[in-house]
Simulated scan of single mutants.
Amino acid sequence: MSHDVLHFEMGAWLMVLAYLTSVVGCTLGLACTLQARHARAPKIRLAWLGLAALSIGGTGIWVMHFIAMLGFSTPGMPVRYDIARTILSAVLAVAAVFLGLLAFGARSRFSWWRLVAAGVITGLAVNLMHYTGMWAVQVKGEIGYHAGLVLLSILIAVVAATAALWFTAATRRLVHRFLAGLVMGVAVTGMHYTGMAAVRVNLDMAAPDPAGVEVFSFLFPVFVLAAIAMAVPICAVLMAPAPGERDEEPPAGTPEPHAPARSGIAVR
């Protein structure tokens, strides 16, 4: 039978916590992306993009998703999570975000087609993580989706992710970079709750209790590990020069702009 589910069993404050978690991860990840765009060495650029993908995909998307899922329940019925699928959703989130950021952050020069490609891939990465994470959800019955709301969730993620990346590239002002994180947080959180609104649960009272673990069993240690892991990109961003400073330094051997023209007489 079709059954209503709860998305805010612990209260609406959980949505605020999930959004703030996403904003922190996305803001830091976009800051790493900006550093990547101004890095000269390819290996350094890839390292920055890897940190960005870990921050956005790991904390901004994956951790946010399971914080929000604390409010999901089927009243009177158990909800469990398949650990292997849960881990897979984390790996896919980081890998897919990395591909999206690679399209955008591999070059310092702005390109509209790169922005659009990165926005589409990154937005789809949000959806990939969400629906893979929902694949891990086990209930006494089956979970289905409303097709129209699923498509809307994809559109929200792609548009907002593209806007966030544009804010990241359009300006170097700190306030705009923070705004990019807020917009990216909207992409992730808005997509999540739109996707959850699409959920249709058909419970079967005769079905066996679902296998797996409760979300509380793995979320707390994961949240602690995520906080520790975030220390790496935070320290990297704080210690790195401001974006664009490298471009202001003249390459070695280049005369200063005010240096007098050489006329065959050595200038000492």
Rank of each mutant, 00 (worst) to 15 (best):
residue 248 E to S: 09
residue 214 E to M: 13
residue 181 G to F: 07
residue 124 L to W: 04
residue 16 V to Q: 06
residue 19 Y to S: 09
residue 252 A to Y: 13
residue 88 L to V: 06
residue 72 F to V: 05
residue 54 L to Q: 01
residue 133 G to H: 04
residue 215 V to M: 02
residue 107 R to W: 02
residue 119 G to D: 13
residue 70 L to S: 02
residue 175 V to L: 11
residue 186 V to Q: 12
residue 139 V to R: 08
residue 160 A to Y: 08
residue 223 F to T: 08
residue 67 I to K: 04
residue 39 A to G: 04
residue 26 C to W: 05
residue 75 P to D: 04
residue 186 V to S: 11
residue 56 I to F: 01
residue 91 V to C: 05
residue 15 M to G: 08
residue 155 L to M: 09
residue 112 W to D: 09
residue 218 F to R: 11
residue 48 W to Q: 00
residue 62 W to K: 00
residue 158 V to E: 05
residue 171 T to F: 03
residue 241 P to M: 06
residue 38 H to Y: 12
residue 70 L to N: 10
residue 213 V to N: 09
residue 168 T to F: 10
residue 231 A to T: 11
residue 40 R to A: 11
residue 137 V to R: 03
residue 13 W to H: 15
residue 100 G to V: 08
residue 231 A to N: 00
residue 82 D to V: 13
residue 249 E to F: 12
residue 45 R to S: 09
residue 226 A to T: 07
residue 27 T to I: 00
residue 82 D to I: 03
residue 48 W to S: 03
residue 122 T to H: 14
residue 22 S to H: 01
residue 83 I to C: 05
residue 38 H to E: 07
residue 61 I to H: 02
residue 227 A to I: 07
residue 114 R to T: 11
residue 142 E to H: 10
residue 230 M to E: 05
residue 104 F to P: 04
residue 45 R to I: 09
residue 162 T to C: 12
residue 235 C to E: 12
residue 151 L to N: 10
residue 10 M to K: 15
residue 164 A to E: 12
residue 4 D to K: 09
residue 178 F to P: 00
residue 215 V to N: 06
residue 78 P to L: 14
residue 94 V to Y: 01
residue 229 A to C: 06
residue 156 I to V: 14
residue 261 A to R: 15
residue 268 R to E: 08
residue 75 P to F: 00
residue 267 V to D: 12
residue 176 H to M: 02
residue 259 A to N: 15
residue 233 P to D: 00
residue 133 G to R: 04
residue 121 I to Q: 06
residue 209 D to I: 02
residue 242 A to Q: 12
residue 90 A to E: 01
residue 88 L to R: 10
residue 107 R to G: 02
residue 58 G to L: 02
residue 4 D to G: 14
residue 265 I to L: 15
residue 139 V to G: 06
residue 110 F to V: 02
residue 170 A to V: 06
residue 36 A to C: 07
residue 129 M to P: 07
residue 76 G to L: 07
residue 111 S to N: 14
residue 143 I to C: 05
residue 248 E to T: 05
residue 146 H to D: 11
residue 16 V to K: 10
residue 189 T to D: 09
residue 44 I to E: 07
residue 75 P to L: 07
residue 35 Q to N: 11
residue 135 W to A: 11
residue 224 V to A: 10
residue 153 S to K: 07
residue 201 V to Y: 07
residue 177 R to M: 05
residue 184 M to W: 06
residue 204 D to L: 14
residue 221 P to V: 08
residue 148 G to Q: 09
residue 227 A to D: 04
residue 128 L to Q: 06
residue 147 A to C: 15
residue 188 V to A: 07
residue 187 A to P: 12
residue 168 T to L: 06
residue 261 A to I: 13
residue 217 S to G: 06
residue 56 I to E: 01
residue 123 G to F: 09
residue 53 A to V: 00
residue 67 I to H: 03
residue 157 A to C: 08
residue 90 A to F: 07
residue 208 P to T: 01
residue 247 D to Y: 13
residue 130 H to W: 13
residue 197 A to R: 03
